[in-house]
């Protein structure tokens, strides 16, 4: 029961969704499955947050290395959760002025909005922006023209980097009209809509076949990896 029932559930759900794409009468079944799917997706966030809470509590109680940072994570988590779930600082809206709880949880001026705007946003945006530094360092140390294929990659990168700036179009000023295709911006457009398009299309078709075969394996019960290895 521990392993057979999940396989039956996965197969039944998957086939209902496939059938609903072909038979209009069963469209409602597909819609119901998707509504449940969305709710479970939301529950996954709750599960993820709860897991984080458990792991950090464990780390603090064991006094493991870096437990102080775990405590910071825990405080940040609990404060955000509290102000978000209890809508701290949220004002009633014009639509429902007598219902304090009806206003959006992330309303401008609320505590959650403040945490998002002044902590979450700069932290996440800066974390992603750090890659600009590391990509520069990696380009200096690892981007080598070791063989003809690497030269092709480098040359394309050079043209695209030039073509996606103001300098890329400057060459047009000096080239005769029939040779304008030699400017970096024109070459970039050509590379993107011909070579890149062809390469990416081959990759897309390959991935589509991969997704289809993996899905079939799951639905037919051949791939059971999602059940885990243990019995419990």
């Amino acid at each position: 029961m521990k392993r057979t029932v999940p396989i039956v559930i996965a197969a039944a759900t998957g086939f209902v969704l496939i059938v609903s794409s072909f038979i209009p009468l069963t469209e409602e079944w597909g819609s119901a499955a998707m509504q449940w799917f969305n709710i479970l997706a939301a529950i996954a966030f709750v599960l993820g947050g709860s897991n984080l809470l458990r792991m950090n509590l464990q780390k603090i109680s064991d006094r493991r290395l870096g437990w102080g940072y775990a405590a910071v994570t825990l405080v940040a988590f609990l404060v955000t959760l509290f102000v978000g779930l209890f809508k701290v600082g949220v004002q009633p809206t014009e639509s429902f002025p007598t219902y304090a709880w009806a206003a959006p949880y992330n309303q401008e001026g609320s505590f959650l909005w403040w945490l998002f705007e002044y902590m979450y946003k700069p932290l996440q945006a800066t974390m992603f922006s750090l890659l600009a530094f590391f990509i520069a360092s990696a380009a200096f140390r690892a981007f080598r023209a070791k063989n003809p294929e690497a030269i092709a990659l480098l040359a394309t990168a050079f043209i695209v980097l030039m073509g996606r700036t103001y300098v890329g179009g400057l060459m047009r000023e000096f080239l005769p009209e029939r040779l304008e295709w030699l400017s970096f911006d024109a070459m970039t457009n050509y590379i993107m809509s011909v070579f890149n398009l062809a390469g990416m299309r081959a990759i897309t078709i390959g991935i589509a076949l991969g997704v289809a075969s993996t899905s079939l394996k799951v639905l037919l019960g051949v791939d059971r990896s999602y059940l885990g290895a243990g019995d419990d």
Partner: peptide, 8 residues
């Protein structure tokens, strides 16, 4: 970031 993000 990890704490705020998970709770958000």
């Amino acid at each position: 970031f990890v704490g705020v993000s998970a709770a958000y």
